[in-house]
Design a protein around this nucleic acid. Structure first.
Lengths: 323, 323
DNA sequence: AGGCTTCCGTCATACGTATCACCGATCGGT
DNA sequence: ACCGATCGGTGATACGTATGACGGAAGCCT
């Protein structure tokens, strides 16, 4: 690991001063440096394989042009597209984007945040309320809009209304709602959106977002004389649990029971029958959030955004048995 | 965004010199600074909310103590645990860990790599062969051991042998192998491990790792008079495709056909019946890889490692029909 | 008492970059 | 021919930190 060349080495090689190298490579040479000199600098830099030292640049400028994307865990189907959307917007503005998983304890990321290595934070699905990033600008994604920071959200309510409309159009009158065990805000919003179309929905909240817990909750909703003809699940994973419960009770999907999910993850098409669900524009979410954060960094105040999802009707929904 | 305090501000507040602050906060004050002075420095730093400037430190030290974890995409079930394992080892040695998705084009990450903001790279499942990280130390995970860098791998061959043994013990004699469309090395290793127990296995390679492609390939293997009694799939997602094919042909799992997966992702327990598969020690993989990388940074040469997986027998495998 | 340690800290400096303040030379205008 | 402006660069400096060289004061030994 030999030392990498500095701008001074480039300067020597090109026969100019270090200042000139800096100016030329920053693209600020317009009208201040002769074209042939510019050429010589570029040539020397290329020949030596010069790369600016980021630490020195950051120190000098007092800024890093880097944003941190905080996700609760790397393993989640939406984070890839969110990253892609955010990274594209960031790159277009000359910003870098770093990803950092932020588990509950909130420990590891502190070093990055505390040391001013970043200028802002994009936080996704932070339900635990760990939103203390010092005084750094923050934009929240998929979080309670009542939070003291701009929020960019999926239009969850709209998605639920789309599902409700779909089921109502098929003729369903009595439904069950398998709610995910997340924050109170999401729970309320989803419930209210559903209540508009189905005032008397049966509701069960799972103890966790996993198949086994969802199966148990679904059994509770289905194993009764007045069971609903459709089950609205807050999440595709929860829908998988509902499938298991239906099979255990000998109920056919969609013959005896319609089931809907949310998110349209891989699972949705792996299940049999394939799941009717709502696809969320994760990439747009990332892009919108990054745009908002850059606004904040420019001292503007961004407006909250809510991005509509798209109903994907598959084979897990059908008219109820009696119709 | 007011200016953050520097070590000089702390020094002024504590009535000492900046050097002393640096020494004390670095923990190198043993025997060189009076305990009460140390106390005063810590107190002042705490009161002012001092955080060292990472850029300045990196510039001064010429190193960043930061490692980059490169993943092909954020969305993948193993990357969370891999990160967790690597991060823990890194933290114990005072290193930071940054995650960077590295899509095929290899563009965005270059800035991080080129500017010496990192000291080494941990690359996971880089099948595309994009292993050009300049002259930075690299450790590869889940990659061809023939690569010109240390590799830390799952013991894929061992996992396949475990599956083969499981099926052989159940009495299966004729099996099919649904191979994933990945690199040639993986394809060969898996095939060979299987061939030891089942010399005449039927093999189909899917065109992509997705449910629809796997379903098609599985149909090809199953829709024949001499169809195998068990289907070994290189991946849980592929197994989901096999489930669909079996259902389309009216075959019961595991009555008419046993199916196995690989990876033990969420999908494995969401399917019905639950999938027999191999669980991989992703967290250990991350830890082992980070350990190896730190060895390289210390100018040692780490030995390649191969981590065994664990057979998880569930309901998708049973003795063949005729036995 | 004088010299040698040990203790407790300070001074000065360098890391590599970007930028502000200059400055010599050339050139156009009158 | 002289002045001001424009061109094409250079010199010096500061960002905040870590550290090697240095040094005053006090204690110990002979």
């Amino acid at each position: 690991m030999d030392k990498r060349p500095t701008s001074r080495d480039v300067a020597r090689a090109a026969g100019v001063s270090q200042s000139t190298v800096s100016i030329v490579l920053a693209g600020k040479a317009e009208g201040r440096v002769k074209p042939e000199t510019r050429q010589a600098v570029h040539e020397a830099a290329r020949r030596l394989g010069y790369r600016p030292n980021l630490a020195a640049r950051n120190l000098r400028l007092g800024r890093t042009r880097t944003v941190l994307l905080v996700v609760p865990t790397l393993t989640g189907p939406v984070f890839g597209p969110i990253y892609a959307g955010a990274a594209e917007v960031a790159a277009a503005r000359g910003f870098g984007l770093i990803v950092h998983p932020w588990p509950d304890d909130a420990g590891p990321a502190r070093s990055q945040v505390d040391t001013q290595a970043i200028e802002g934070v994009l936080a996704s699905s932070i339900v635990g309320g760990v939103t203390d990033f010092g005084d750094l600008p923050v934009v929240l994604m998929d979080s309670d809009p009542a939070a003291p920071a701009p929020t960019i959200n999926f239009d969850v309510a709209g998605g639920m209304r789309a599902i409700a409309g779909h089921l109502a159009a098929l003729g369903h009158r009595r439904i069950g709602h398998l709610a995910a065990a997340v924050d109170a805000w999401t729970f309320r919003v989803r419930g209210e959106a559903l209540a508009d179309a189905f005032p008397g929905a049966l509701v069960r909240r799972t103890t966790a977002i996993d198949v086994a817990a969802a199966r148990q909750a679904a059994l509770d909703l289905l194993d009764r004389p007045d069971r609903p003809s459709a089950l609205v699940c807050d999440d595709d994973v929860i829908a998988a649990g509902a499938y298991k419960a239906a099979r255990a009770l000998g109920l056919d999907i969609p013959g005896d029971l319609s089931v809907t999910g949310f998110d349209d993850v891989l699972l949705a098409t792996a299940l049999e029958p394939e799941l009717t669900t709502v696809r969320l524009p994760a990439e747009q979410l990332g892009a919108a959030a990054m745009t908002a954060l850059l606004e904040v960094l420019d001292d503007h105040r961004p407006s909250g955004v809510s991005l509509p999802g798209e109903l994907i009707a598959r084979r897990s929904t059908a008219p109820p048995a009696g119709s």
